[in-house]
Design a binder for these strands. Structure first.
Lengths: 338, 338
DNA sequence: CTGAAAGCGCTAACAC
DNA sequence: GTGTTAGCGCTTTCAG
């Protein structure tokens, strides 16, 4: 037994079926008009030889490879995975395969990958990354369409599908207001991160619309649990009371949750908590489970892939396309029914 | 401007350089003997046209696509990513690209992907998954070599690179013994998971070698923090004292850590804690940071890829190949210097 | 040193 | 209905 030495070609199939390669091709692709008997004979031969048409040879004709490249600008991680999965889903349905390339934050490596992908004649490219910041275009005048997913391109002519963080932050605030909280604090990531700034601004803006303000200026720090714990210390040291904390990430929220409990404040009775990312490990690990903003990264990836497919078929959609967030309510904002 | 309509072909380059395609090919690939002047003229033409040789057409000759498929049997996740990254790393160095396919635990989907990959004439296939269990071979007598990474194939003829969980568990126990603990408990995942059984058995075995035993039979449960917390309740309710807990995962360890602290036991002074997976989110989120067993998944992925490359070049390595784990020591087992 | 020609595996006109 | 032929983009003999 062992492995067959080589792949069967259509010539092998034709020979076995006793027809010409042209006829075999037609039979296998359901083209032309053939006797049904011939068709089945060819198909049987193909089956017998485990024939799989050589996609490369095929695309030499069609000009299409039914293949797209996916470049992550930085290391593949928690955010890129769902995006990738969503894209895979949408593309898989169109029978397309994905080349995965990990840019590792290295522009050289990235350009090398772009070249590789072009030489492999991908039909299009999806670029994604770990942050929502805008980044340089991977190249203008590439011979194939490009869509940025999660991350966005600084070139407004490029097509970027990004999470609508503003609306996500607004939804978080609205929910806290809806459950009767008005003295809200905001603990989030580093100020030099676009996401942190945008979410804070949106939260402030939404409160202002209600004639309210945060109980203290946004606390910018890191995205970690440690920072969440530390921030609680800062909040408690200040004299202003608060009945809710909107956190820039679930990790922060978890840190906040743990520190509040350690300080004797009950969640959600004394302080309601909303996180961001809806990362199950954090939302479920926290006690009580965290209410959180979900960026629907999988949906975002799917949407990006669909736009890419559209662009491949001639209908590009340049510009920035925000993808809606949704709020997932859990025990950190709602007191469970007794 | 906008996108160039089509990719430049070698004929375009040849025309621009005023040579035949044959000459252009030689010039670009450094074959044959050409005047240096010609070579540079062709190269210049290629540069001007952003020429990238069509990999598909090329492989029609070479029979190789410099492409491998990577199939995840279940959804891509925390364990498959590092494996994937390692493989990507090793393969990228060999100028190979990766087709990523997400099997989603669906055998139909999986078989479909195998077919797709074969039609794309990948040079080889890597199969990975979320669990270390053995799984059915994706197919015997495939025309290309296959390597299983992390997950293993139930067919001993297949090449599988798996984490050496036994030795990992032994290292954990040895470390606890080295820091003077002898009354060790073990809290781990569900008994029907291979990993849970194997690690527990290895821990017991290593202790037996020292004439010791666990303070209680292994506590099988889930992989979650919640189970870790719950298990502490069980341990404390029992009358046997313990000075260390070896946990089957970092999530469990974190739950154990939190619950111990809540119960007034100090980590590591009263109870030392070792986790498994070395998952930064958990090891760093816990207080103190967790000592943990690292399966070196990236190295494992790299190793798997290297074996695949070797197999592609004719040197297969059938069988099961354990990849060593290493212990990462942190504050949960070592009292920091005052 | 360079060009012409054959062929990789497949599809699509066009004959027969 | 089926076979023949040309050609997709490239590499590789083999002549010149």
């Amino acid at each position: 037994m062992g492995r067959p030495e080589r792949h069967a070609t259509i010539a092998d199939v034709a020979a076995l079926a006793g027809v010409s390669v042209g006829t075999a091709s037609k039979a296998l692709n359901g083209r032309g008009s053939l006797r049904e008997e011939t068709r089945t004979r060819v198909r049987e031969a193909a089956r017998q030889l485990s024939f799989q048409a050589n996609a490369g040879a095929r695309s030499l004709h069609s000009g299409r490879t039914y293949t797209v490249g996916m470049i992550t600008t930085d290391t593949i991680g928690r955010f890129s995975i769902p995006v990738l999965m969503g894209a895979e889903d949408a593309l898989g349905a169109g029978e397309m395969s994905i080349f995965l390339c990990d840019g590792r934050d290295d522009p050289i490596r990235e350009q090398y990958y772009v070249k590789t992908l072009l030489s492999r004649r991908v039909d299009g490219i999806i670029v994604t990354g770990r942050r929502t910041e805008a980044r340089m275009s991977i190249g203008r005048d590439l011979p194939v369409p490009v869509v940025y997913a999660f991350i966005s391109s600084s070139d407004p002519q490029d097509c970027s599908v990004v999470p609508d963080e503003e609306s996500g932050a607004r939804k978080a605030v609205e929910h806290l207001l809806a459950v009767g909280r008005t003295r809200i604090a905001h603990v989030t990531g580093p100020e030099h991160h676009n996401s942190a700034r945008v979410r804070a601004a949106a939260a402030l803006d939404r409160l202002a619309g209600e004639g309210l303000d945060l109980v203290a200026p946004p606390l910018f720090g890191g995205w970690s649990e440690a920072w969440g714990r530390q921030a609680v210390g800062i909040l408690l040291a200040g004299r202003t009371e608060f009945d809710a904390v909107f956190c820039g990430s679930d990790q922060i929220a978890r840190g906040v949750s743990d520190a509040l409990r350690a300080a004797g404040r009950r969640v959600p009775q004394d302080v309601a908590l909303v996180g961001f990312d809806n990362w199950d490990v954090m939302t479920e690990g926290a006690q009580p489970p965290l209410t959180s903003v979900d960026m629907d990264l999988e949906g975002l990836g799917r949407s990006a892939a669909e736009r890419l497919l559209a662009a491949i078929n001639g209908t590009a959609s340049p510009g920035r396309h925000p993808h809606p967030c949704r709020l997932v309510v859990r025990g950190s904002t709602i007191v469970p029914p007794a």
